[in-house]
Simulated assay, not measured.
Amino acid sequence: MSSSDIFFGEVLGTAVLVLLGCGVVAGNVLRKSKSFDAGWVAITFGWGIGVLSGFYVSTQLSGAHLNPAVTLGLAIDTGEWGDVPTYVAGEMTGALLGAVLVWLAYYGHFQAHLEHHKVVGGSRTPGPKAFDAAAETEERREPSRQEPGPVLGVFATAPEIRNSVQNVTTEIIGTAVLIFLVLGIGLNDGLTMSGTGGLMVALVVVGIGLSLGGPTGYAINPARDLGPRIVHALLPLPNKGGSDWGYAWVPVVGPLVGAAIAAGIHNLLF
């Protein structure tokens, strides 16, 4: 594979992954959407299908890493580091592109949703006509309590219980499960060549979401979280809230540590 194949393959695959993954969250969160409040199961399957789709559109070009944690795990396991920067550059570019496409697809819904809600103390409250003086006073008195806006979750993850040690540990465990499976499939040429491996990875992503996604929203992919978070920070939307940069390191560091641990163990065993 040439460097250009790797880069454009990862851009394409990761963009599809983020478009479908963040798209299912947008449909769940934005009130004017027909899939509003579809639930966590819908979200996990949406992300799984995003992984599967990204895999099939990019695997012949780049091998479909779609995730810097996967790239790191494979590099540790194989000792091949030369293409790592190209993979990561493609993955980050694709994640940014995918997030922008979600914004375009749901543009009117974002506008309708955000124009009628303000962020106060982390909660979504009715728009300007019902924005009472008591809430406004509280917002001025305790600005430190401001939390991410109601649409940040479309783009990036956030914990249900904010505890850095627990949150990082959850991301490490979830990503380690993913990397063990990816490396295990790599040992089976039949699965790799048939494409069944992509389906298995997609299903395990669904499983990780159902079993381990509750605490943090299961980033398990630094590009999937950081790229869309950057897009959220740049979007010209009203009342969108902050991008929660104080938490942004967790879905980057946790998956990378989990990948390194899983790849190290796999290398020792196999």
Rank of each mutant, 00 (worst) to 15 (best):
D225K: 14
P251T: 11
P85M: 08
E10Y: 08
H232R: 03
F8R: 10
A135N: 10
S2R: 08
R124W: 05
I265T: 05
V252G: 06
I208L: 00
L199I: 13
W249V: 03
A219M: 08
V24C: 12
G214M: 09
L269C: 14
V206T: 11
A105S: 14
I76P: 00
G186E: 11
F55N: 12
I172A: 03
V205K: 01
F7C: 02
F45V: 09
R162L: 15
V100G: 07
F36Q: 11
Q146I: 02
A99G: 09
S58W: 03
A176W: 05
A156E: 03
A233Q: 12
L256C: 12
N67H: 13
P150M: 05
R124V: 15
S4L: 13
L212C: 00
P238D: 02
M92G: 00
D37H: 11
G94W: 12
V201C: 08
H65V: 07
A233Y: 11
G207H: 06
V165C: 13
L226P: 01
G153V: 14
E171L: 03
A69F: 05
L96A: 14
W103R: 07
T93K: 02
S58E: 01
A75M: 10
V253F: 07
H113F: 15
T44K: 02
A219N: 07
A233T: 15
V41P: 03
P255K: 01
T192M: 02
E139G: 00
E91V: 13
V119K: 00
A130N: 15
S62R: 02
S3T: 12
R229Y: 04
I265A: 07
R229M: 05
M92T: 00
A248F: 07
K32V: 12
E139S: 07
I161C: 07
E139Q: 14
S33G: 04
T59Y: 06
L61G: 04
E160I: 15
P68V: 05
V250C: 12
A95I: 15
E115I: 04
G23S: 07
T125K: 14
F45A: 05
E80W: 02
G39R: 08
G246Y: 10
F36V: 14
P222W: 08
A42F: 09
L187C: 04
Q60F: 06
A75T: 08
F8C: 08
V24T: 12
A219F: 05
T170R: 01
M193L: 12
K240R: 13
G13A: 13
A42E: 03
M200Y: 10
S53T: 13
I179G: 00
V29H: 03
L114S: 11
L20A: 08
G197D: 04
K240E: 02
G127W: 06
A262E: 04
F131K: 02
R224C: 09
H109C: 13
L256G: 13
V25Q: 06
G207A: 06
L203N: 11
K32H: 12
H113Q: 15
S123W: 00
S123H: 09
G127I: 05
